[in-house]
Each structure stands twice: as structure tokens, then as C-alpha cells.
């Protein structure tokens, strides 16, 4: 099919057709929520603390699931492991700021636009199991955010 008016890519369609071509007949059932929560900002941005969350890995997948989730000090920023689903032909992920905008967030604080950035950033690496995401990963991340008194969760999805 020739697309004459390109619009955003459907990764659900692309990945379904790709894995069907590999012989996987049952398509992945993507998460879908009937009800989406919403909380208004609890105050002006300049009074709030923002926590940065990434779906990139910090350790090779070969090391297993133990330690996949992480909360690490901003000072330990640096390379991520990015083995999962991204476009290796079109780009690269060598600049960690493309995955997690720590410098941009710190600049917003320095300019007085944002109150503060959590002293730790958080990792919830790509996980196929929605049960694990709901029952294990999301509660763990929420608990860390609460420990660090974060007001705004900012998730950059790889």
C-alpha cells in the first residue's frame, strides 16, 4: 500500500504483521484502559517536584529480571541499555538526554519555571506482561515517587 498522506505510524499494526510473518499467529493484546485517571496540578509548576521515569534498561537483559526496576541518583546519569523495540536504522540512543531529559529539567528549575527535580530518576523497563506492570512495577515506582515527595510523574517511553 502506498501512503500518499503520511500520518503517524501504527506500531500496533506494524508489529502484528511483522510477528505474523515470523509465524506468531496470536497478536499481542495491547493494554487498553476503559477509564483513564486525571489529577489537576496540585499547584503552580514553580512550587512542584517532578520525577523523571524512563522505560530504558540500565542493565543487559541477559542479567534477568532481578534489578530491572531501578531508582538511581541523578548524579549517576549516563548510558542506558536500549535493547528493546526502537528504530535502529533511523537513529541511535547514544545521547541519554533523548531518553530522559535530565539536563532540560534541571534547566527549567534553574530558570524558576519548575520547583525541583526528584534527586533520583526511575526505571520501569519495557515489560510484555501487563500483570507485572500493574501488580509489581507500577506500585514499586509509585512507592519510590512518594518516598521522594514527587508531585509530577514524567514518563518518557522509549
Amino acid at each position: 500500500m502506498t501512503t500518499t498522506h503520511p500520518r503517524f505510524v501504527s506500531y500496533i499494526d506494524k508489529s502484528r504483521e511483522y510477528y505474523q510473518a515470523q509465524g506468531y499467529e496470536a497478536p499481542y493484546r495491547w493494554a487498553t484502559e476503559a477509564t483513564v485517571p486525571f489529577a489537576p496540578m496540585p499547584g503552580p509548576l514553580k512550587s512542584l517536584r517532578l520525577g523523571l521515569i524512563t522505560t530504558a534498561d540500565r542493565a543487559p537483559r541477559s542479567e534477568g529480571r532481578a534489578g530491572m526496576l531501578y531508582a538511581q541518583p541523578l548524579a549517576s546519569r549516563g548510558a542506558f541499555h536500549t535493547e528493546m523495540f526502537w528504530d535502529r536504522d533511523a537513529t541511535h540512543t547514544d545521547d541519554p538526554e533523548t531518553l530522559l531529559p535530565i539536563a532540560a529539567a534541571e534547566a527549567a528549575v534553574a530558570e524558576g519555571v519548575l520547583g525541583s527535580v526528584s534527586p533520583r530518576f526511575y526505571g520501569v523497563p519495557t515489560e510484555y506482561s501487563q500483570r507485572r506492570t500493574r501488580e509489581e512495577d507500577a506500585p514499586a515506582i509509585l512507592s519510590w515517587l512518594q518516598d521522594d515527595q514527587v508531585d509530577i510523574a514524567f514518563l518518557a517511553a522509549l
Partner: peptide, 21 residues
């Protein structure tokens, strides 16, 4: 963008800052 750079293209701090804004 292609998957992999949700917060701006690599080594482009001005663009990354603009997207964060």
C-alpha cells in the same frame, strides 16, 4: 519521531529543552 528519541534528537540540547518546555 522514529522510536528511540522521544525527548528530542540526539545531541540537540536546544531542541530537547524546547520539547521539555
Amino acid at each position: 519521531y522514529p522510536l528511540g528519541n522521544p525527548c528530542g534528537r540526539p545531541w540537540a540540547p536546544a531542541e530537547q529543552k524546547g520539547l521539555f518546555a
